[in-house]
Amino acid sequence: MRTLETLVEGLKFGEGPRWRDGWLWYSDFYAHHVRRVNLQGRVAEVVDVANQPSGLGFMPDGSCLIVSMLDRRLLRLKDGKLTEHADLSDRVDAPCNDMVVDAMGRAYVGNFGFERHKGQSPKTTSMWRVDPDGSIHEAAGDLMFPNGTVITPDGGTLIVGETFASRLTAFDVAEDGALSNRRVWAEMAGGVPDGICLDEEGAIWVADPRGCRVQRILEGGRVAEEIALEGRGAYACMLGGPEKRHLFVITNEDSGPGVAERTAGRVEVTEVDIPGAGLP
């Protein structure tokens, strides 16, 4: 059985791990930081985001897109300068969260759909696509907490985790970025899909905070592998490293605002057999 080793500890709440050029980038949203870490555990500051950074992704020119959760904006970091790329606040009335950016620079941004930490009842919401020019388009509706999202290597399929529906949902991606042919990719039988990443065999690693585990799931729902976390929740995962066989997992004791007063978050890592593929 695989076990995880701690690469970084002392996070308030990590999110959005992305591997790029020898570094794992990640958000620490209650600390309002975007940081990066290498395989030797060296941490470097990237930028501060006042309204809580979450999902990360990269444009074709190398600039970094950052979801700003509380003001529901998409920011762009280029040449050390942070600017607004798109304002989603008139389309989304709850915090934005995870995101995937495709090879053309189109960002698919999820959101909570309701204020879960304020006692609101769950309801469906839409995922929004932000094109490279900053224009905003509804990508898909009737999603229950659209969260971690991946795109296959050919760019033709997008798969999103619907956290509170316990499923992974797939769409075909058209040349203009439009989504169609919605279908269930996998049911998770009570699991809670949060962050996800894709490997070369088409399987998806799924961080499941409620189950305190990371699972490698095949299309149709069969669990090919599971890594238990001994009472800690898994909130996001990413395949990276020089051969893309390092599985990075963001873990914590909880996800509510109370963890902002603690530093229990970690980036943990193990090596797996099948390399990562696709996006992010």
Score class of each variant (00 low, 15 high):
residue 2 R to P: 15
residue 3 T to S: 15
residue 5 E to G: 14
residue 8 V to A: 04
residue 18 R to G: 15
residue 20 R to D: 14
residue 35 R to G: 13
residue 39 L to R: 09
residue 40 Q to P: 13
residue 41 G to Y: 08
residue 41 G to M: 02
residue 41 G to T: 01
residue 43 V to S: 00
residue 51 N to M: 13
residue 56 L to D: 00
residue 58 F to D: 09
residue 60 P to N: 04
residue 67 V to Q: 01
residue 69 M to V: 10
residue 75 L to D: 00
residue 80 G to D: 10
residue 80 G to R: 04
residue 80 G to H: 13
residue 81 K to A: 15
residue 86 A to R: 08
residue 87 D to A: 08
residue 90 D to I: 11
residue 93 D to H: 10
residue 95 P to T: 03
residue 96 C to K: 01
residue 96 C to S: 06
residue 103 A to I: 14
residue 104 M to V: 14
residue 104 M to W: 15
residue 111 N to G: 04
residue 119 G to C: 15
residue 123 K to I: 13
residue 125 T to E: 09
residue 130 V to K: 05
residue 130 V to G: 05
residue 138 E to P: 10
residue 142 D to E: 12
residue 145 F to A: 12
residue 145 F to H: 13
residue 155 G to T: 12
residue 155 G to V: 09
residue 159 I to T: 10
residue 164 F to I: 13
residue 166 S to F: 12
residue 168 L to I: 06
residue 173 V to R: 09
residue 176 D to W: 08
residue 177 G to M: 01
residue 180 S to R: 08
residue 181 N to Q: 07
residue 188 M to D: 11
residue 189 A to M: 03
residue 189 A to R: 07
residue 194 D to H: 07
residue 200 E to P: 14
residue 202 G to F: 12
residue 206 V to N: 01
residue 207 A to K: 03
residue 212 C to V: 06
residue 219 E to D: 13
residue 225 E to G: 00
residue 228 A to I: 14
residue 231 G to A: 06
residue 232 R to T: 08
residue 238 M to L: 09
residue 242 P to Y: 10
residue 246 H to Y: 07
residue 253 E to V: 14
residue 256 G to V: 06
residue 258 G to P: 13
residue 261 E to I: 08
residue 262 R to E: 11
residue 271 E to P: 01
residue 272 V to G: 02
residue 274 I to D: 05
residue 276 G to M: 06
residue 279 L to S: 07
residue 280 P to M: 11
